[in-house]
Amino acid sequence: MTRDAATRPVEPADVVEQALQLVAATYRSPDAALRADLDSGAFATAVAELAAATGVAAPVFQVTDWPKLQTTYVTLFVTNAAGVPAPPYVGLALDGELLGPSAEALKRFLAHHGVETAAGWHDLADHVAAVAEAGVLLAEAGRDDAACVLLERFLSPWFQRYAPEVVAADDSGFYGPLTEFLGSLLSEVSCETAA
């Protein structure tokens, strides 16, 4: 199945890939790779490029304090004395339960397209970062259509459900602006073709 060039949406296909890449980088547990990308400015460049390509207002974000970023990540997505604002599981956003029908559909979908979680990935397959990464893999393999499905049917609902919570609860100056940006970006990056 290939998409007709004439009905291709205005966005180039690599916007999708880049957007997914950015989602994957942002919602993984803050690790050395992210730190390197932040320090080198590669992260900021990618954000700026995406903003320019899609016309979504670029976010104002900052990373003043690395340990603070790590703590905020935990507070927002992992554990929080006041309740976790945004559990990072797309199935939870879609079904209200873990490993529910949507998570199962995602699993079947990924299996169907030959993507599986790596042995070192100790989390659910429907973690936002994992889904985005799967999308990147699919896009790299030329399966833009499948990547788009991940973006539209799985990632976007998570942003719709939880982006406001992240924005409200963030005090790092990083996750809030980026989530807002990525949320609008994902709703802008339309994969749908005119029928």
């Binding site: 290939t2 079947r108 499905v149």
Partner: peptide, 13 residues
């Protein structure tokens, strides 16, 4: 070809 209908079926096993 439009993304939807039969295409969707092909994407989802």
């Amino acid at each position: 070809m439009a993304l939807g209908g039969s295409a969707q079926a092909q994407l989802f096993p």
